[in-house]
Computed example of a mutant assay.
Amino acid sequence: MTRTHMRFALIGLIAAVGASACTPTVRLQVDPIQIYAKLDADVRVRLDKELQDLLAENPNLF
């Protein structure tokens, strides 16, 4: 290899290293979501009452 070829190879190597150092980095950060839920006991009482009424109307349901 001649000196000129060596210089071109060295320049090509430096360019390749420089180009690989500039690769983009994508970072995705998702903050946690806090959900506050309050269930009312009235919902359960209503459902139980509806179920009792349904069973009273249809005693052979089950």
Rank of each mutant, 00 (worst) to 15 (best):
E50R: 07
E50V: 00
A37Q: 14
S20H: 06
T4Y: 05
A16K: 00
I33F: 01
V26H: 06
A15H: 02
L55D: 03
A16S: 11
D48N: 10
N58Q: 11
N58H: 12
I35G: 01
A9H: 06
I11F: 06
R46A: 10
T4G: 04
L39I: 12
S20N: 09
I14Y: 00
R7K: 12
A56K: 08
K38R: 14
G12K: 02
I33N: 04
R44N: 14
G12F: 00
L51N: 09
I14Q: 04
L39V: 14
Y36K: 15
D31C: 00
Q52N: 14
T25Y: 03
D48I: 09
L54A: 15
A9C: 07
G18K: 04
L10F: 05
D40K: 03
V26A: 07
I14E: 02
V45M: 03
D42W: 02
D53R: 11
F62T: 09
L55I: 12
P59V: 04
K38I: 08
F62V: 10
L54M: 09
L13N: 01
V45K: 07
L10V: 10
D48M: 08
M1S: 11
K49N: 11
I11G: 06
G12N: 00
V30H: 08
K38W: 02
Q52E: 13
D31W: 04
L54K: 09
R27K: 08
H5W: 09
C22M: 12
R7S: 10
M6N: 12
I14G: 01
P59R: 05
V43N: 05
D31I: 06
D42H: 10
Y36W: 09
R7C: 05
R3G: 15
A37C: 05
A15V: 09
I14W: 00
A56M: 11
K49S: 14
L28S: 04
L28Q: 07
A9S: 13
V17M: 04
A56Y: 06
Q52W: 04
E57W: 02
R3D: 15
P24F: 00
I11D: 03
H5E: 15
R44A: 13
